[in-house]
């Protein structure tokens, strides 16, 4: 198994204000698959994503990615791990305001020894004509596409997406989902996407439903629905 999570626990705060956000998560994700984590706010899905992404630490439990145990990694190793294996997409894009679209993507490319061709990617993302623009000259969808470009240009093993369509309108959301789907199929990255939009689950190989820090349901789709056919 490419990603294996065993009995993962995480809590925040101390004493009476202590909140257990993850109460024992077990999850296996295959390489190249598309996994969607669904659940209401506070269910622990973003925390789980952050722990997988190595930007937060679990209190207990194991995560093994491609044979490497994350809990044994020190800060520097975690940085190397993120650098080598991960691409991150956030709801709020987090682009560097004084770099152009192309340069923002190059920020990702710089981290890889064999990055994807930036021009080709710009075409794939539909951003080629906007490559010289700064983030504040772009629409929300264009900014998110740039953020996706930055995440995938280094061709990461895992693409972590935290509510990537949360700030976008319906049509743009579908475009972005289509893009992620295309990337997944074209480059074979493992995609783990956090969302509270049930409909998005249709495009995944594996749908994990969470509530109160526990996995309540896991569903394997035999056939994935194309992003453009999703309705909500």
């Amino acid at each position: 198994m490419f990603l294996s999570i065993h009995h993962l626990k995480k809590s925040f705060g101390n004493g009476e204000s202590r909140v257990e956000v993850l109460k024992g998560i077990d999850l296996d994700v295959e390489k190249g698959s598309f996994c969607v984590l669904l659940g209401p706010s506070g269910s622990g899905k973003s925390t789980l994503l952050n722990i997988i992404g190595g930007i937060d630490r679990a209190d207990s439990g194991d995560i093994v990615i491609d044979g490497d145990r994350m809990e044994e990694m020190k800060e520097k190793e975690l940085t190397r791990y993120r650098r080598k294996h991960l691409g991150y997409i956030f709801q709020m894009y987090n682009l560097i305001p004084n770099l152009t679209v192309r340069e923002n993507i190059e920020v990702g490319a710089y981290l890889s020894r064999s990055p994807l061709d930036v021009d080709e990617l710009l075409h794939t993302l539909g951003l080629y004509d906007h490559r010289g623009k700064l983030p504040n000259q772009l629409s929300g969808g264009q900014q998110q596409r740039t953020a996706i470009g930055r995440a995938i240009v280094k061709n990461p093993d895992i693409l972590l997406c935290d509510e990537p369509t949360g700030a976008l309108d319906y049509q743009t959301s579908k475009e972005i989902l289509h893009l992620i789907e295309t990337v997944n199929r074209k480059y074979g990255n493992t995609v783990i996407m956090v969302t509270h939009n049930e409909a998005i689950g249709g495009m995944a190989d594996l749908v994990v439903r969470m509530r109160d820090g526990l996995i309540r349901d896991r569903q394997t789709n035999e056939a994935r629905i194309a992003a453009e056919d999703l309705e909500w």
Binding site: G53, G54, I55, K76, T79, R80, Y81, R82, R83, K84, L86, G87, Y88, F90, M92, N94, L95, I96, P97, V107, G108, L111, R150, A151, K154
Partner: peptide, 16 residues
């Protein structure tokens, strides 16, 4: 001002 960008860069693998 750039906290989220820094966080993203760090999350993407940029070292401190």
């Amino acid at each position: 001002k750039e906290a989220n960008v820094i966080g993203t860069l760090r999350a993407s693998g940029y070292s401190r």
